[in-house]
Design a protein around this nucleic acid. Structure first.
Lengths: 133, 133
DNA sequence: ATAAGGGTTCCCCTTACTGGAAGGTCAAGG
DNA sequence: CCTTGACCTTCCAGTAAGGGGAACCCTTAT
């Protein structure tokens, strides 16, 4: 199977597949012409990677997940620990973004959005440093 | 004022301040010794930038916001439009992250997390491609 | 004189790819 | 046999927003 076929089946662009080989996530065979020759197992792995990435796991997480996936003697607690850490990171990101969202929404609401220069958004960014200063 | 003083006052690391000069957000004077000589206005701008960044605006957004900030004849609608677009991007990110969070939380809940290899998390990443296949 | 603690530039590193150039390969048609 | 077009290959550069560190200059105090 050539790379574009694998791209179709795994859902990953050819560029990404080459990149994943580069960083050692997969190791497809090569034909006499130098073309990558992918086995079904490669497609399987790439599909796995695509899904793990879609859940927001980093490449390094994916590397670990892949190793656990291939290790039939793994402990599910190891997988769970990875997922929990990742979940915690995501929850922190969401919290940060929610803070931004609230502030921004308030500011957008407070701004008249007309042709006058007065703007609470810019006021908020302008330096009220601190009263005590 | 030298750069470390400005770092303290603006809350930005010296590296970031140099970077912001590099990309043309600020243009401090130079002393005879080659040192950057910051005016209060520079500190003011940097503080503005720090806050805009803290609200998640990209550098390019910051560049536009800074221009509007300095333009006394601006229309607040221009500022508001920028903020609304940014708000929309943030809300999309939050939505994506919430999807991930839900899925991950379900998976973490479903995983026993013991020393057995059976794991719903890996199952979810494994390829159930499609039944019809 | 020298040591500490500023400052400066420069280049590489990060994440996870994406785009593009230059060139080899393959299958079909004239 | 030649060409054309669609593949494939490698390598180089760039993204966002800086961080780390080297090598070197400036200032001030001892």
């Amino acid at each position: 199977m050539n790379i574009s076929q694998v791209a179709l089946r795994s859902g990953l662009p050819p560029k990404t597949i080459r990149y994943y080989e580069d960083i050692g996530l997969i190791a497809p065979d090569r034909g006499a012409n130098g073309y990558r020759q992918f086995a079904d197992e490669d497609v399987h792995k790439l599909t796995f990677l695509n899904r793990a990435r879609a859940l927001g796991f980093t490449i390094e997480d994916c590397r670990k997940l892949l190793a656990l996936w291939e290790d039939q003697t793994r402990a599910s607690s190891d997988v769970r620990a990875l997922a929990r850490e990742h979940l915690a990171r995501i929850e922190m990101k969401i919290a940060d973004l929610n803070d931004m969202r609230r502030t921004l929404a308030d500011l957008v609401d407070a701004c008249a959005g007309d042709d006058r220069p007065d703007c609470p958004i810019l006021k908020r960014l302008d330096a009220p440093l601190d009263i005590r200063d």
